[in-house]
Simulated scan of single mutants.
Amino acid sequence: MIHEHVQSRKGARKTSDIPREVLDLLNRGLIESVNLIEWQAVNHFTLLKHVLPSFNLEKGKSDVLLTEMANHNAFTGMKAIRTTSDLLTTVMFDESESKKLEILAYCSNHMSDSVRCWAAFMNKHRQQTLAEKLSFIRHFAADHHFGVREIAWMAIREDLSEDIDKSVELLTAWAKDDNENIRRFAVESIRPRGVWTKHIEILKQEPHKALSLLDLLKADSSKYVQDSVGNWLNDASKTQVNWVLAICEKWQKESVGKATEKIIKKATRTIMKNNC
Rank of each mutant, 00 (worst) to 15 (best):
M78E: 13
F75P: 14
H72E: 09
G60N: 15
P53E: 04
M69C: 02
V22C: 01
L88W: 13
I103H: 06
V22Y: 04
V42S: 05
K49M: 10
H44T: 00
T67D: 10
R28V: 00
E21G: 05
E21D: 13
K49S: 06
L48C: 11
G77S: 06
V64T: 07
E32H: 04
H72M: 09
N35S: 03
D86I: 01
D94C: 05
E58M: 08
E68S: 15
D17E: 11
T46I: 10
K61P: 15
D63Q: 10
K79D: 14
G60W: 15
I103R: 06
V91Y: 14
S33N: 04
R20Q: 14
D17V: 01
T83V: 07
R82E: 12
G29N: 03
H44R: 04
T89M: 01
T90Q: 13
D86N: 13
A74C: 13
T67M: 14
I81H: 08
K59I: 06
S33E: 01
A70K: 10
H44M: 02
A41H: 05
T84Y: 06
F75Y: 07
E38L: 00
H50L: 01
L26D: 02
A80L: 05
E58P: 10
V64Y: 13
A70R: 11
L101R: 14
T84P: 05
N27K: 03
G60T: 04
A80G: 04
K49C: 07
N27V: 00
I103N: 10
A74I: 00
R82V: 07
E32L: 08
F45A: 07
L101D: 11
T76Q: 15
N73H: 13
M78W: 01
S85C: 02
F55S: 08
E32F: 12
L23W: 00
W39C: 02
T67R: 05
R20A: 14
L88C: 03
H44L: 02
V64I: 11
S54H: 08
E21H: 03
S33L: 03
Q40D: 09
V42E: 11
K99C: 12
F75W: 04
F55Q: 09
W39E: 07
V42Y: 11
P53L: 12
F45S: 11
K99A: 15
L23R: 02
D94E: 10
V64G: 13
E32W: 12
I31C: 06
G60S: 14
V42L: 07
I103D: 03
F55V: 00
D24T: 13
R82T: 09
S96A: 08
L101V: 08
R28M: 03
A80I: 00
L48E: 10
S85F: 12
S98N: 15
E32P: 05
D94H: 15
M92F: 11
S54C: 10
L36F: 12
E68Q: 09
K61Q: 12
A74E: 11
K79H: 04
D86C: 06
N71G: 04
V34N: 05
V91A: 15
E38M: 01
D86A: 12
S33P: 06
T83A: 06
E97C: 07
L26V: 00
K99S: 12
V51A: 15
L30D: 02
L88D: 02
F55A: 05
N43D: 14
L87V: 01
L57S: 02
V42G: 09
S16P: 03
V91E: 07
S54E: 11
T84I: 01
N71V: 00
